[in-house]
Simulated scan of single mutants.
Amino acid sequence: MKVADLINWFEAWAPPGWQETWDNCGWQIEPGVLDERARVLVCLTPTLAVMQEAIARQAQGISINLIFAHHPLIFSPLKAVTKGDPIGDMVRLSLAHGIGVYSGHTNFDQVADGTADVLAQLFDLQAASPVVPTQTGLGYGRVGNLPQPLSLQQLLAKIQTVLKPPDLMYSPQADLAQPLERIAVLGGSGASFLAAVAATNAQAYLTSDCKFHQFQEARDRGLILIDAGHYATERPACARLVEKFQQVGVEWVQLSDRDEDFRQFFGAK
């Protein structure tokens, strides 16, 4: 499968036109690789570490020509491309080594097997549906019922086992013995969806990047807010993307091992 064919397949499944107005999905850097056979490194965030990983693979004889990332490399219009600037260095290395950078972001968030849907599957949510529908059966977040009720303590333990976050935060005054049946999930920064989640009658909401007053708001809405971190809640969808690329015939595709969680917790095990 050529790079162009892979991108055409992805964009038919998750059209870039679905992205939010502030977003920048699609090609970030296209160094002339469209007609080459796709050899792909999938990552959450396109960083210099991931680019160096791709270059090292080339030196080992694996001619990687595409970094497929969830997060965009470029959000604001570039005014200059200079050595020593992280984006400038990414552009320079991309062109020098023939490694394109492509992003599927808020369009990928909405689809079946996208960021929210994969979380719903990992926690076996039954009859899961979008928290905020955007198309029929698709949209942001998922809400559904657990196969059997879990206490909050059990749910937190399951999140720790399944997602392996470095730390977990949850709403104040939550009762760890409280039985939970209906759960909402949204990978990445999802606290702005609190009102929509509360309207689904979810008892708990798993997402990330939650602020102090958003925990307060969740408590006031009678919703247990659980923050497992941006990386932990979105990385599983990147792994799923590798599987889907394999299924459509990509010759070589692998999940980056240089992807990073940019947070560290002192004293965390």
Rank of each mutant, 00 (worst) to 15 (best):
K2P: 08
V3E: 05
V3G: 12
A4R: 09
L6F: 08
E11L: 00
W13P: 03
T21R: 13
D23N: 12
W27P: 10
W27F: 07
Q28L: 08
I29Y: 00
E30I: 01
E30L: 04
P31L: 07
D35N: 10
D35W: 08
E36D: 14
R39W: 04
R39M: 11
V40A: 05
Q52N: 13
Q52F: 08
E53D: 08
A54N: 08
A54W: 06
A56L: 00
R57Q: 05
G61E: 12
I62Y: 11
S63W: 03
S63R: 09
I64K: 06
N65A: 04
I67E: 11
I67F: 01
F75T: 13
K79C: 07
K79H: 09
V81A: 06
V81E: 13
P86W: 14
G88E: 15
R92F: 15
S94Y: 10
H97C: 10
H97E: 14
I99C: 11
G100P: 14
H105T: 08
T106D: 07
Q110Y: 03
Q110S: 04
V111R: 09
A112C: 05
T115C: 00
T115N: 07
A116L: 00
D117T: 05
V118R: 04
V118T: 01
L122D: 01
D124S: 11
L125K: 03
L125I: 04
Q126C: 08
A127R: 04
A128E: 01
V131Y: 08
V132D: 10
T134W: 00
L138Y: 09
P149H: 02
P149V: 06
L152F: 10
L156I: 12
V162N: 01
L163K: 13
L163W: 14
P166K: 01
L168Y: 01
Y170A: 01
S171L: 13
Q173D: 15
D175G: 11
Q178L: 14
L180N: 04
A184D: 11
V185D: 03
V185T: 06
G188R: 01
S189Q: 10
G190N: 12
G190R: 06
G190T: 08
A196L: 10
A196F: 12
A199K: 15
A199N: 14
T200M: 06
N201T: 07
A202L: 05
Q203R: 02
Y205K: 06
Y205N: 10
L206H: 06
T207F: 13
S208D: 12
K211V: 14
F212H: 12
H213E: 10
Q214W: 13
F215A: 03
Q216N: 12
E217W: 13
D220E: 15
L223T: 13
I224N: 00
I224S: 02
A228F: 02
T233R: 09
A237R: 06
V242M: 05
V242E: 01
V242F: 07
E243T: 11
K244T: 04
F245T: 05
Q246I: 07
Q247V: 04
Q247P: 02
W252V: 11
L255E: 12
D257K: 03
D257W: 00
R258T: 15
R258S: 14
D261K: 00
F262H: 11
F262W: 00
F265C: 06
